[in-house]
Nucleic acid binder design. Structure first.
Length: 544
RNA sequence: GCGCCCGUAGCUCAACCGGAUAGAGCAACUGCCUUCUAAGCAGUAGGUUACAGGUUCGAGUCCUGUCGGGCGUACCA
C-alpha cells in the first residue's frame, strides 16, 4: 500500500512540476489515528523548491491522487501541509483474507531470500558458566537470527572460541589444584585462579575417571581437556534451556593451523601496511583514521587477539556469507574498526560485516550495583536466573530494550517479576484466544463456509485488523534494523487491540456469519501472536 | 586527557533515522466480573525530553559547549 501511494504521489509531482528533481517520498503511519492510516510530508519538503506554501502544494498533489481502485477512502490535507490517507473497508477486507489464507506463514518475507547470513554470538571462552552478562548477547543474537530467517535468509549461528590462551592454562591449573587437594595433597591455589564451585565439580569428575594417578605436571592437559568439555557441555545446556542451538563452533586455533594468520601478515606486508618496531609487528591503523597504530604480533612472538579476529572475519566472508553479523558488548566498541580495516585492506568487502554493539547490563542486587567476575566466581549465572523466573521471562527481559541502551537488571525485582511481567500480557492474549476457540468448536460448525470479513466493522475489530496488517512490514523492518525490541512494542499494541476486542465484541451467541468472521479474525490474531512470540523465542501457551 | 555509548513521567523504558497533542509498563488513585480466562478493560494523576546555545517551515531526534553515568583508550583477551 505504501508503495502504491508513493507511485501515485510521484506521478502527481511529475505532472505538476516536470522539471524538478523528485525527493525521496516517505510514507509513514501517523501517531494519532485522527490523522488517518498513512501520511506523507512531501509537500513540506517541497515548499522551498517549488516556492509555494506547503498546504497549497499538498492540495494540488491530493487532487492528483487516483482513488478509483477503491482502496483509498479519503485523501486530505492537514496541519502544516501533511497529506493524510485513509484506507477503505474493501482494502482491509482483502488484506485480511490473504493474511487468513497465509496461515502460520503470515509475516514471512522475502527481503533476504537466497542470502546466506551468519550470526556470530555468545562466543564466550569456556572458562565458566554463562552469566547474566552473557544473556543479553545470547538472546539478542538468537533473536536477530530468527528475524533474519523470517525475512527469507539462510542463517547460520556460530560460536567462536579460544581454548589455547593463558586463560585456559590458568583454568587447567585451577582444576588440577582442586584435584590435588581432594586427594589430600597440600598445594597452593594458582595466582589469579578460578575459584568457582564448578571447578571442584570438574576435578571430582576427573578423579572418578582417572583415580589418583595424575600427580605430575605432565598431566595438565587432562585437566584442561576435562575443564573445556565440562564447561562447554554446561554452556550448551544453558543455551538449549533458552531455546538457542548453535549450528557451528569455530575454534580460533584453526586459523593458526591452516596458515590463515601467516597469510594475512604477508598480504598486509605486501600492501605496505605493516612494519616492525621494538621487536613487534605493527599494523598501520593510522591510515584508516586511528590515532595510534596497532600491534598485531607482540615482541614475544605471540599475536594479539586482533590478528586472529581479522583472519576470522576474512574466513567468514570466504565461506560465502553475504552478510556476517557480530554481536559485541560495549567493550569491543573500539576494536572492531581495526578488524574492519584489516578485512578491507586484504581486499574483501567489509560492508558485508555488520556489527551490533549492545551496552552492558548493570546488575543490581539489594539496591546496589554488582560487579561480576568469572574468575572470582561472584557472578549470577543464567541458569540461576532461569530457575527463578523461567526462560520466557529471561529472554523477554533482554529483548525489551534497544540494544544501545544501558540496561539495568535488578535481580531482586526480576525474581519477584514472575507474575507481573509484561511477557504474560502477550501470552495471556494467546491463551485467551485458544480458550475461545475450544468453546466455539462446541457451538458452531463452520465447515464449508467461508468467512465474510466485510462484516467486521466494529471499531475494535477495525483497529485489530489494522494492527494485524502491519505485521509483515514490522518483521522486515525489525530484521533490517536489527532491533528486536520494536517487535515487542508491536506485539504489545496488538495484544491491547485484541483485549479491547475481547471486551467489546463477543462470538458465542452471535449469528453464524458474524461469529465465523470474528472467529477467523482471532485465528489470524493467534497466528500473529504465536509467530511474533516464536521470533522472540518465547512460548505461546494454549492455557494459562 | 582523548574516543564511543547513554541521559525522556517517582522507577524501567518507547517514540518508525527531522514531523502533527512526547507514549507504554510498574508504582498511586477511581470505576467495571450471574455471559467466550479480571494475568483483562475503561479512566485520573504524573514532563521545561539533564542544561545552554545553534541549524529550519518544524528538534527528544542533527551541530557546538557544559554537567552527570557507563565502556574503551595496553606489546591483556
Amino acid at each position: 500500500m505504501h508503495d502504491y501511494l508513493k507511485q501515485q504521489i510521484e506521478q502527481a509531482l511529475k505532472s505538476m512540476a516536470p522539471d524538478i528533481e523528485i525527493p525521496e517520498i516517505t510514507i509513514e503511519k501517523p501517531r494519532s489515528p485522527e490523522h488517518g492510516d498513512a501520511a506523507t510530508n512531501v509537500a513540506l519538503t517541497l515548499a522551498k523548491i517549488l516556492k509555494d506554501n506547503p498546504r497549497s502544494i499538498a492540495g494540488k498533489i491530493a487532487g492528483h491522487i487516483d482513488v478509483s481502485s477503491g482502496y483509498i477512502s479519503s485523501v486530505e490535507v492537514a496541519g502544516p501541509g501533511f497529506i493524510n490517507f485513509r484506507f477503505s473497508g474493501t482494502w482491509l477486507k482483502d488484506r485480511l483474507e490473504s493474511a487468513f489464507h497465509a496461515g502460520r506463514d503470515y509475516g514471512k518475507g522475502r527481503h533476504l531470500e537466497g542470502k546466506k547470513v551468519q550470526v556470530e554470538f555468545v562466543s564466550a571462552n569456556p572458562t565458566g558458566p554463562l552469566t547474566v552478562g552473557h544473556g543479553r548477547n545470547a538472546v539478542l543474537g538468537d533473536t536477530i537470527a530468527r528475524l533474519l530467517e523470517w525475512t527469507g535468509a539462510d542463517v547460520q549461528r556460530e560460536y567462536y572460541f579460544n581454548n589455547a590462551g593463558r586463560q585456559m592454562r590458568v583454568l587447567a591449573e585451577s582444576v588440577r589444584a582442586r584435584y590435588l587437594q581432594s586427594i589430600g595433597h597440600d598445594t597452593d591455589f594458582p595466582e589469579g585462579g578460578y575459584e568457582g564451585l564448578y571447578i571442584t565439580e570438574i576435578a571430582k569428575k576427573v578423579r572418578e575417571q582417572h583415580g589418583d594417578q595424575l600427580l605430575g605436571e605432565e598431566h595438565l592437559h587432562v585437566f584442561r581437556k576435562a575443564a573445556e568439555e565440562g564447561i562447554f557441555e554446561d554452556i550448551k545446556r544453558t543455551l538449549a534451556r533458552m531455546n538457542i542451538t548453535m549450528d557451528t563452533f569455530f575454534n580460533e586455533n584453526t586459523l593458526y593451523e591452516d596458515g590463515s594468520i601467516d597469510k594475512i601478515i604477508e598480504l598486509l606486508r605486501e600492501k605496505g601496511l605493516i612494519y616492525e618496531q621494538d621487536g613487534a609487528t605493527w599494523f598501520k591503523t593510522t591510515t584508516f583514521g586511528k590515532e595510534k597504530d596497532t600491534v598485531l604480533i607482540k615482541s614475544s612472538g605471540e599475536p594479539t587477539y586482533r590478528l586472529p579476529d581479522i583472519a576470522y572475519h576474512i574466513n567468514k566472508l570466504e565461506r560465502g556469507f553475504d552478510l556476517a553479523i557480530d554481536i559485541f558488548g560495549a567493550d569491543h566498541i573500539a576494536t572492531y574498526p581495526d578488524v574492519v580495516a584489516g578485512v578491507q585492506a586484504c581486499g574483501l568487502d567489509s560492508s558485508r560485516i555488520d556489527v551490533i554493539v549492545y551496552q552492558f547490563v548493570t546488575i543490581v542486587k539489594d539496591g546496589k550495583p554488582f560487579k561480576m567476575s568469572t574468575r572470582k566466581a561472584n557472578f549470577v549465572t543464567l541458569d540461576e536466573l532461569m530457575d527463578e523466573v523461567g526462560a520466557d521471562v529471561t529472554r523477554f527481559f533482554f529483548l525489551m530494550r534497544a540494544p544501545g541502551t544501558h540496561l539495568e537488571f535488578d535481580i531482586n525485582e526480576a525474581k519477584q517479576a514472575g507474575e507481573k511481567n509484561p511477557v504474560f500480557y502477550l501470552q495471556y492474549a494467546h491463551a485467551r484466544i485458544q480458550s475461545i476457540m475450544r468453546k466455539v468448536r462446541n457451538h458452531y460448525d463452520f465447515t464449508g463456509a467461508t468467512p465474510d470479513f466485510a462484516l467486521l466493522t466494529h471499531e475494535a475489530e477495525v483497529t485489530l485488523i489494522k494492527r494485524l496488517l502491519e505485521f509483515p512490514e514490522m518483521v522486515t523492518q525489525t530484521a533490517m534494523q536489527r532491533e528486536p525490541h520494536k517487535l515487542i512494542t508491536y506485539l504489545n499494541d496488538l495484544a491491547t487491540a485484541f483485549h479491547k476486542f475481547y471486551h467489546d465484541c463477543r462470538i458465542l451467541g452471535e449469528e453464524e456469519p458474524l461469529a465465523r468472521a470474528r472467529t477467523e479474525l482471532l485465528t489470524v490474531t493467534a497466528n500473529v501472536l504465536a509467530n511474533g512470540l516464536g521470533i522472540l523465542g518465547i512460548t505461546a501457551p494454549d492455557r494459562m
